[in-house]
Design a protein around this nucleic acid. Structure first.
Lengths: 364, 364
DNA sequence: TTGAAAGCGCTAACAC
DNA sequence: GTGTTAGCGCTTTCAA
């Protein structure tokens, strides 16, 4: 029944005895084709095993019907970092090598990605996932930008000028980043507010006064959290906070420094971390320093990833609505398809305090 | 500097004072262009903010540079099913509503997908994720098939005739399905062998003789597991096994029936499940029947998902190398790009027994 | 080394 | 309601 080449509209048309326009209409605007004709076309298509070529379609109508998410090498990075941190902590312990490692998956980005996927299906879009590594340069993100109607990127993942160029072509949203005047759309969460609430909990409910902030504040998100932390200290009259602790020399060096710090008699009463992953590393350091959480000090995270929940003790943290974040990203993109340089939109989602046990509460 | 339309090769060419062919060559075969010319083109491209149109490229050279993974509505389905089963079991318990639910994510498919992603990046391909729901019909999968150079699908996700049609156009691999004569590539694991090993463990190490198999055997995978189970019983001289237990009326009905069955005095000594998710549901039923695992009976799973590891007690199971599976899928696809009707390839990956506590062992 | 030109498969005016 | 036809932006012979 079939030729050797993959069938096109022309093949279907000639087999059905109609023009290619009619074939096209049959698929795009069925109601404009007489039922009998439509049936004939469909029959021919099915007999030939016709599969429309999306490239051709995209070229012709200027839309691809897909949204893009640039994943960078977060996944690979994450795996390395976590291993480096020696995160064998966590109540679940480590199974044999090839068992799933909750400290690696799912992470924050994975949950956001899931939200993006779900919402894409719902809005009738396909999702183009692109992944780069540090070595792949800008070609990958540009490449995926060339194949979608809208693109989502995580911050610090793509050079600003590259993003700007892409934003001139399709809508771009920067996930999880405070609005800034870069012509991109932004979807983020209330980092500062969440951190204030968490810090307040530590101060009011647990009477802690000497708190240390741990984690790099190199991203806008982390900076906002640090800001919220300090603001709340100030509000409580605890102005003279220790400087934020972070070690650039890598996870191992940071761990050592942390252990050293915690072993001193003037160790803080609580450690407030920029992320759950940071907190899990701290939990590890605390254990290595021969101390117990929350007995000897409180430790808190930020994000609400699974690893924090199965950590030992379970991490008190601030939960980000990651799936919602992902869904919101898609909504913004879909709303702006075809209008690349439209007025940038900013959405901020609320966060929620998740009281577990690492702060000293007796909850779960 | 810029016009209002997104720049094309023509714009770049005219700005650089060359032909479009030279622009194209500059990107595709830089070595064939004189350095000075190349530099001029690159400069023009960058000034204009040129982003190549992937649709046009795909149309012209017949390749999209992307691989596809059709996800169906596994994710949505899973969420529903699990909730329906009332799987509030598991040691981690349930946090507030918007916390992550380990019984929902990551599941088997999520881990495989992750392997697919990782390997796609590595091989220089983008990944097109398509998701359908029962209502979306075949259009979605056909649509994504039309935009990629190779497609991976989970079994029972796409009607055979649709798959066959697609396979005539691009290579298709059916993930996690025993080879069958359908012209598709297959990547699967040693389901029967893994289940035999697990069953043997129960019989030899724990002296169990009255084992019940729980779970639908409607998929080839599950069928292979059931086969392995029975084979091992037979080998141990325990031929008269109970019939496999599964309830079509939905998770709730199955739970009720299970509780009823377990409450009887002639309850089995062990329940061998087709999947971890099944096992977690059984754990739940056991608890509701007022019994304790493994004291009153053993329960085992299959897959090795995270939820089983943080279940209470931790699930003894057979771990599938899911990430590897995903990577293998990509490799097969990449190897066959451009050769849709090539000889089908079959790959079977080994599995590994994961002894935890639900079988009665004292391990972790 | 570079340019001219012929498509790739489909969509959407526009004409009939 | 259906057919004709002009592109969509890029790749790739083939000539120059």
């Amino acid at each position: 029944v079939s030729a050797d080449k993959t069938p096109t509209v022309y093949d279907v048309a000639s087999r059905a005895g109609v023009s290619i326009a009619t074939v096209s209409f049959t698929f795009r605007r069925p109601e404009r084709v007489r039922p009998a004709t439509r049936a004939a076309v469909l029959a021919a298509a099915s007999e030939l095993g016709y599969v429309p070529n999306a490239s051709a379609r995209g070229l012709a109508d200027g839309r691809t019907g897909a949204l893009g998410l640039y994943a960078y090498d977060f996944l690979l990075d994450a795996a390395e970092n976590v291993n480096g941190a020696g995160a064998t902590n966590g109540g679940a312990g480590g199974d044999a090598a090839d068992d799933i490692d909750a400290a690696t998956f799912p992470l924050y980005v994975d949950e956001v990605q899931r939200g993006v996927e779900l919402q894409c299906w719902q809005r009738g879009y396909a999702l183009m996932l692109g992944g780069g590594s540090r070595t792949s340069g800008d070609t990958v993100v540009t490449d995926i930008a060339g194949r979608v109607d809208g693109l989502a990127v995580f911050p610090q993942t793509v050079p600003p000028d590259v993003l700007d160029r892409i934003a001139g072509r399709i809508p771009v949203v920067e996930v999880s980043h405070a609005p800034r005047d870069d012509g991109l759309h932004h979807v983020t969460v209330d980092n500062a507010g969440g951190m204030r609430e968490l810090t307040r909990h530590l101060i009011r409910e647990h009477g802690l006064r000497d708190l240390l902030f741990v984690g790099a504040v190199d991203s806008a998100d982390a900076a906002a959290r640090h800001r919220g932390f300090r603001a709340e200290l100030r509000a409580a009259g605890l102005g003279r906070a220790r400087p934020a602790f972070a070690h650039e020399e890598g996870a191992r060096a940071q761990a050592r420094a942390l252990i050293e710090l915690l072993s001193r008699s003037d160790r803080p009463e609580g450690v407030v971390c920029a992320t759950d992953l940071d907190a899990i590393a701290v939990l590890d350091a605390v254990a290595q320093a021969g101390l117990k959480v929350p007995r000897d000090l409180a430790v808190t995270g930020f994000d609400g990833i699974l690893a924090g929940r199965i950590a030992n003790p379970p991490l008190t943290t601030v939960r980000q609505p990651m799936e919602q974040l992902g869904r919101a990203v898609v909504d913004v993109l879909v709303e702006h398809v075809g209008r690349p340089r439209a007025e940038p939109v900013s959405i901020q989602l609320p966060v929620r305090l998740l009281i577990r046990r690492s702060c000293g509460c007796s909850g779960r």
